[in-house]
């Protein structure tokens, strides 16, 4: 029972981590919360679903399609809602509001295009494996494998590649990065599109996992991702990864050993307690809020 729930929790949590990484990357580099991230996630889920149901492509191609759609949405978001506000004497809440605008727009478009009803996500793999008392489905293995690989690749990319380092430099101090020769505008576009691509892939994984895709799924999952962003320490990559796993496990355990109607209450209650103890989040440092 315990190990079974742990695997279930890790699976759910790894999708939260993936969503939270999108918020985290953007928070780290731009110091803003992208309120449209949940809707980009939802769009990714729909694109993946449509590719699988209508074009009958395999799930990897569907994820690639979702990632590309997400990246393009990210580029548009940056152009339309973020860039016009940059380096202008506007309130720092302005990008928050403008991304809320984009999120409302995207949700309305999704309602028009896809209708309000929830749709099944047909999956070609229904097999499951028994490990002693545990039963792990192929879908779970797939979700764990995809999200953990993406997280590992992202970490490696940030740590070792030239562009990854430029992104970290931009996140720490955009002016300094620019002075060292980094085209920081390009890095910002790259960051927003990468974050959105990750969010879209997470959308496909969540669609698979819950076997449901609907236009409002961005709001609930977006809130979870935001909670993980804060839990992990506003802009900290490791924090987002671990925070997502913690939230997923907490939710699953509160259902398994408690009452399913308190699922979110327990999870968010736990976040509040952690933030009482560590106001800067799990991995944030006190003087370093927002990745600065």
């Amino acid at each position: 029972m315990f190990w079974q729930q742990l695997v279930n929790g890790l699976t759910l949590g790894s999708t939260y981590s993936l969503i939270a990484l999108g918020y985290t990357l953007i928070m780290g580099v731009l110091n803003i919360v992208n309120m449209a991230h949940g809707e980009i996630f939802m769009f990714g889920a729909f694109v993946g679903l449509l590719l699988v149901t209508h074009l009958k492509v395999n799930i990897f191609v569907a994820m690639l399609g979702a990632a590309l759609t997400g990246a393009i949405l990210g580029i548009i978001l940056e152009r339309v809602a973020l860039r016009p506000l940059r380096r202008k004497a506007v309130s720092h809440l302005a990008p928050l509001i403008s991304t809320i605008g984009v999120s409302i727009f995207l949700e309305s478009v999704a309602l028009k295009l896809f209708g309000p009803q929830s749709r099944d996500f047909p999956s070609s793999f229904t097999a499951a494996f028994e490990f002693g008392p545990m039963r792990i489905s192929l879908v779970q293995i797939f979700i764990l494998a995809v999200s953990f690989s993406l997280m590992l690749v992202l970490r490696f990319w940030l740590a070792k590649t030239k562009i990854g380092k430029a992104l970290r430099a931009t996140a720490e101090n955009i002016e300094t990065a620019n002075l060292l020769g980094v085209n920081t505008n390009k890095i910002i576009v790259l960051t927003v599109s990468l974050a959105s691509a990750l969010g879209s892939v997470a959308g496909v994984l969540v669609g698979l996992s819950f076997n449901a895709v609907e236009p409002t799924m961005g709001i609930t999952m977006g809130l979870k991702g935001l909670a993980v962003l804060i839990l992990g320490g506003m802009g900290n990559i490791t924090g987002a990864m671990l925070g997502g796993l913690i939230l997923g496990i907490a939710e699953v355990f509160s259902v398994a050993y408690g009452n399913s109607s308190y699922r979110d209450a327990v999870a968010f209650g736990m976040i509040i307690v952690i933030l009482f103890i560590r106001p800067q989040g799990l991995f944030g440092s006190r003087d370093q809020q927002g990745g600065k």
Binding site: K162, K165, A166, R168, A169, E172, N173, E175, T176, A177, N178, L179, L180, G181, V182, N183, T184
Partner: peptide
């Protein structure tokens, strides 16, 4: 600024602006 760097002008800014979350080697690589 990045265009000016490519022309061969580098600034050591007031207050130095070391990237404190990156290693010394990474600072130099940047």
């Amino acid at each position: 600024p990045h265009k000016i760097v490519s022309l061969g002008i580098s600034l050591v800014p007031e207050g130095r602006n070391i990237l404190s979350q990156m290693t010394i080697l990474e600072n130099l690589e940047m």
